[in-house]
Design a protein around this nucleic acid. Structure first.
Length: 818
DNA sequence: TCCTCCCGCCAAGCA
DNA sequence: TGCTTGGCGGGAGGA
């Protein structure tokens, strides 16, 4: 009598395969009961290498093992059935989840490489698959049909398919997008949403027929399977059920993602569109339910392929299941998608529809003369990425950023074969450079006329006016401060009100509002129809989303007075995250942090725009630009902010804004830095509460060992050690910091120089000030919550900075000035 | 209660 | 005629 132990071993195998990070062709863990391995002889070594190199051989081996074990399992099953009571037997069966199509698809995909060698076709025999996966044939058809729709497999003969992997995927997606555009799916989606909206006021259901006829009257006729040249479609029932097949449905479903912005499609809308195309008269509930069922089937497979991801769309009428496209970007009219269909390298195409910057710009601004800001998918992505960055930082707990396989997950799925590693690395690098380009585009997209022209003669110079952009588009309008000596420009982020002032006072500087700032030109075609969308992306994402929701909720009371930029901000915050931005979390984290913590005024060296990619650092890297993770925060050479006093005098930053703390200031530079400005100080000068910050600060500094136990650091060391320039002399006085604010500071070691600065929150209206998340840790560093700020100095004596965030929860901190 | 989707019937179509 | 393919919807597990 076989015991259920065997069954347990089987489910262990299932669990192993359920690992989300499980990639095809990973070497299966050796069963414990396996006898000791062969001696490490050259023959066995060769055997193993051959096995590792050839999926066929490995597959055969696996098959042999599986067939051995499957017969045992069958026997076990039979015995169990005989010896266990009905209930017990049912309990011993795998749960519903373990039999899901998604899991099955994972197992199916694990059998084949993502990018198989084209010289060596791998075939799929359905009998074998059903046997090995121990699943009904019917289920395999579901998977194969969807894969067929993406041309990842094609039917060769009865019971026999060819595995293409992802080689054809970019082409397929491009074709699907094109067909989707031709079929005007976007209009259909808008129409459906519009009808839904109207239906709220006309709930008698008469609209259904109208909608159906509208959908039917659209130009697109019954659509057939989208084929690729060279990938023939040989369905068994070519004529009969072709148009209803899961294949075609799957393609249409994918098209909806590819043409819509944001790339989120609710099942309801998808089902309606699919029904609308099929039989208009059957827009009844049962038909609808059936379509939804099929869409779930398709979505499960697409999710396993990591092309989509389940989310929920919250609309006025409730929460609806939807899916978000997480596959490669597919831009319209991209002609030069190159498939690296090399038969020798087996490498994945490293540029899955990733366009060059030029193409992106071309697509964004096709007509040179007229630069209307239309909502373009690329544009939306940039806005999304920025706002999601902000959202992530704002809402994220003080946990370290995990840079692991999850980072890779945001990329197009790669096989994990060793031979493809170079391609992966290359792709990573390209992704990084792409992100850099994105950053550049973020700088240039919205006000391209404001970006310095690349001509050498037009190099930005301090004395040369660079043009002024429309100000106050954003709550944080950056001012670019070029610094030719270092080749690094800095941006001062100011409040709009200050930006106005600054524009007035300093025509020599360029105002460059943040992307997303100007929303007047960025209007979705369907924004009127689209509802407020918030996405919930499962457990891990939910935590990030919650603050967004609360943020939105908190902003509601002031909706009337909100500016367009604020509306944009909110809308952008509601937009789904962009996976691209994950690629360089490490490099961008510092920038993100500063973006997050200095909503009022701060300086951001623009090295990220130009040298953001470490891999791209060449000669400048030697100069120290990219040598440090924190290079963005310190001067390339001296570690001090390259900002002469004259510049700051010119800037004349008016209101209560404390200079960036994430920048090291030399005493000379600090002399001119408008460390404090005055408006708020004056208004609150009467407040002279006890100063708890000093003790708190000293406690912290002592706690982390930055100062000896006996040493006391004044609460406002900046002010004590920094002579205030004449321009900022009216910043004298004292101020009371609003409660619950985050103070971020940078240490410049040695600490007894005391030249670290506080960044305080702006003197914005209280209701506009978001209560910052009070962290459990006093210090928030890029390294994580438990990472203490580090102090070090290099051999040249250049001081490294490390920054931390001091959160003062719900208490007043008074910064007084002598 | 509703969402999700497994399961298997059964018909179309192929060899 | 037997087998493959796959549309379809009942109904159960799970949230």
């Amino acid at each position: 009598l076989k015991t259920p132990l065997k069954q347990a071993a089987t489910s262990q195998l299932v669990l192993t395969e359920r690992q989300p990070d499980c990639q095809p062709l990973t070497t299966p863990p050796k069963p414990k009961e396996t006898p000791p391995a062969d001696p490490w002889t050259p023959t066995s070594n060769l055997k193993m290498l051959i096995s590792a190199a050839s999926p066929e051989i490995r597959s055969r081996e696996q098959r042999r093992l599986l067939s051995d074990s499957s017969s045992e399992v069958l026997q076990t099953k039979h015995c169990m059935q005989e010896h266990l009571l009905g209930d017990e037997y049912e309990k011993s069966q795998p749960s519903r989840k373990e039999k899901s199509l998604g899991l099955l698809c994972h197992k199916f995909l694990a059998r084949y490489p993502d990018f198989p060698c084209l010289s060596q076709k791998s075939y799929i025999c359905l009998d074998e698959v059903t046997e090995e996966l121990r699943v009904e044939r019917r289920r395999i058809y579901d998977i194969v049909n969807v894969l067929e729709s993406l041309h990842m497999v094609s039917r060769l003969a009865r019971n026999r398919y060819v595995w293409h992997g992802r080689h054809n995927l970019p082409q397929t997606l491009q074709a699907l997008r094109k067909v989707g555009e031709d079929n005007k799916y976007i209009q259909q989606i808008q129409l459906i949403k519009k009808r839904e909206y109207e239906h709220e006021f006309d709930p008698d259901g008469e609209r259904n027929e109208e909608m159906a006829s509208s959908l039917g009257s659209s130009e697109q006729s019954e659509m057939s399977f989208v084929e690729l040249p060279g990938v023939e479609f040989r369905a068994a029932s070519v004529n009969g059920r072709k148009y209803k097949s899961l294949r075609v449905m799957s393609q249409k479903f994918v098209m909806l993602f590819l043409v819509s912005t944001p790339q989120i499609v609710s099942l309801e809308v998808a089902a309606k569109i699919l029904i609308g195309e099929d039989q208009l008269e059957d827009l009844d509930k049962s038909k609808f339910k059936t379509k939804i069922r099929r869409l779930y089937d398709i979505a499960n497979v697409l999710s396993s392929l990591k092309l989509i991801k389940k989310v929920h769309v919250t609309e006025e009428r409730g929460r609806k299941p939807a899916f978000k496209w997480t596959g490669p970007d597919v831009l319209p009219n991209t002609q030069d998608i190159k498939l690296e269909a090399s038969s020798t390298t087996c490498s994945p195409p490293v540029s899955d529809s990733i366009p060059s910057k030029e193409q992106c710009s071309k697509a964004l601004f096709p007509s040179k003369g007229k630069q209307n800001f239309t909502r373009h998918s690329s544009l939306i992505k940039l806005v999304k990425s920025i706002e999601n960055d902000r959202r992530k930082i704002q809402s994220a707990p003080t946990s370290p950023v995990k840079i692991s396989s999850s980072t890779f997950q945001s990329l197009p799925v790669f096989p994990n074969t060793i031979s493809q590693f170079p391609a992966i690395s290359k792709h990573q690098l390209e992704g990084q450079s792409k992100t850099t380009e994105e950053m550049q585009m973020k700088c240039a997209l919205f006000f391209p006329e404001a970006v310095p022209k690349p001509e050498p003669s037009q190099q930005p110079a301090l004395s040369q006016p660079l043009g002024v952009c429309p100000a106050s588009h954003s709550p944080m309008s950056p001012v670019i401060l070029p610094h030719p000596q270092s080749g690094v420009s800095y941006a001062i982020y100011l409040h709009p009100s200050q930006a106005h002032t600054l524009t007035t006072h300093s025509p020599g500087f360029m105002l460059q509002p943040l992307p997303c700032a100007n929303v007047t030109g960025i209007r979705s075609n369907n924004s009127k129809v689209l509802n407020k969308i918030t996405t919930e992306e499962g457990g891990t994402q939910r935590g990030l989303d919650e603050p967004t929701k609360s943020l939105a909720a908190e902003e509601r009371p002031e909706t009337k007075s909100e500016t367009s930029s604020q509306r944009c901000l909110k809308r952008s915050q509601a937009l789904p995250e962009n996976n691209l931005i994950k690629r360089r979390k490490t490099d961008e984290e510092s920038l993100d942090t500063s973006l997050t913590f200095f909503p009022s005024g701060y300086l951001i060296p623009l090295t990220h725009c130009t040298h953001g990619n470490k891999a791209e650092c060449s000669s400048k890297e030697k100069a120290g630009l990219c040598s440090l993770q924190h290079s963005a925060y310190s001067s390339p050479i001296t570690g001090v902010i390259p900002m002469p006093a004259s510049e700051l005098k010119t800037v004349n930053i008016p209101a209560f804004h404390i200079t960036p703390l994430n920048i090291m200031l030399s005493p000379n530079s600090i002399a001119a830095a408008p460390v404090l400005s005055n408006s708020c100080l004056n208004s609150s000068s009467t407040s002279s509460a006890p100063n708890p910050s000093s003790s708190a600060l000293n406690f912290m500094l002592q706690h982390i060992g930055l100062i000896p136990a006996g040493v006391q650091v004044p609460a406002n060391p900046v002010l004590q050690h920094v002579p205030v320039s004449s321009q900022s002399e009216n910043s004298s006085g004292s101020t009371t910091v609003q409660e619950g604010k985050v103070i971020e500071f940078t240490f410049c070691s040695p600490i007894n120089e005391s030249n670290f600065l506080f960044s305080l929150q702006p003197s914005a209206p209280k209701e506009a000030q978001e209560p910052q998340a009070v962290t459990e840790n006093f210090f928030r560093t890029p390294g994580g919550p438990n990472t203490e700020p580090s102090l070090s100095a290099n051999s040249e004596g250049t001081q490294r900075t490390s920054q931390g965030t001091l959160c003062i929860p719900q208490r007043k901190l008074e910064v007084s000035e002598d």
